[in-house]
């Protein structure tokens, strides 16, 4: 291991009544990387994000951020520590302009000193939506909303960005643009954890891939390793009888 992990998940489990949505999952995320979490529908990817951001409380296990446990902290406290999340279904503040949306992220987010104006501008540029700054959020297309979602998240000056299917429903051109944005975010020093269905994008952009199936972690490695893993192939394509 080159550096201390920015995110550590230790023996995490989440049970919804009879359903074990996340079962004894452990992994670490290196700073400055893009890590993708993939898996079939219902594998527990979104639940995993909900547990890390404090939206749900785990049944068992610990989440460590920069070495400190954050399990059980309120969502806004976790944001103050430096974790941001971009939702799969974009949730803009519809009555506000694009810049005002991003400004809310810049005004709050990670605790400490901040330059709201510069952070807002920087996030808009990084996400490639500076030209839309004055538009009302309500008029944006689905693709533009995803960029806004990401811009608002990184405006919080987070060190770790959890992006929940940022490419879902986007056409190939929009997907390529979003992948480009994620790369630029990594270059700016932010660690990215990605949930994504679009396999070519995942393979192209990820440093590391985690595969969840039925709440269990079945593979963990580079894109090349994971795509050759027989368990992963079985999970995605089914096993021959």
């Amino acid at each position: 291991m080159s550096a201390a992990p920015i995110l550590g998940v230790e023996a995490l489990s989440k049970r919804f009544r009879g359903l074990l949505a996340i079962s004894d999952v452990s992994f670490t995320v290196e700073p400055g990387s893009i890590t993708s979490v993939i898996g079939p529908n219902g594998a527990g990817k979104s639940t995993l994000f909900n547990l890390v951001t404090g939206y749900l409380a785990p049944t068992a296990g610990t989440v460590l951020f920069k070495g400190h446990p954050i399990t059980g902290l309120a969502t806004n406290r976790i944001a103050e520590l430096g974790i941001a999340r971009a939702f799969q279904i974009a949730r803009p503040f519809r009555d506000l302009s694009v810049a005002e949306n991003v400004r809310i992220g810049a005004l709050f987010g990670k605790a400490g000193r901040r330059d709201v104006v510069a952070t807002t501008r920087g996030a808009l540029e990084l996400a490639g939506i500076a030209h839309l700054a004055e538009e009302p959020a309500s008029v944006l297309t689905v693709g533009q909303l995803r960029h806004l979602e990401v811009a608002r998240a990184i405006a919080t000056r987070a060190d770790l960005l959890l992006a929940d299917e940022p490419c879902a429903g986007l056409n190939p051109t929009e997907t390529a643009a979003m992948i480009d944005v994620l790369r630029r975010i990594r270059s700016s020093g932010v660690t990215v954890v990605l949930v994504e269905h679009d396999m070519p994008s995942v393979m192209e952009v990820s440093d590391r891939v985690l595969v969840l199936e039925s709440g269990r972690l079945i593979a963990d490695g580079t894109p090349g390793e994971v795509s050759k893993n027989p368990q992963v192939i079985a999970a995605y394509l089914g096993t021959p009888d």
């Binding site: 951001t53 939206y55 309120a74 969502t75 806004n76 944001a79 103050e80 941001a84 999340r85 939702f87 949730r91 503040f93 519809r94 009555d95 506000l96 400004r103 809310i104 992220g105 005004l107 709050f108 987010g109 990670k110 605790a111 608002r152 998240a153 919080t156």
Partner: peptide, 18 residues
């Protein structure tokens, strides 16, 4: 600005650290 974000979407506001 925090109150405004609460009015717009309270869960998202909390996620942004409000």
């Amino acid at each position: 600005a925090g109150l405004l974000s609460i009015r717009e979407d309270e869960d998202t506001a909390r996620m942004l650290g409000v």
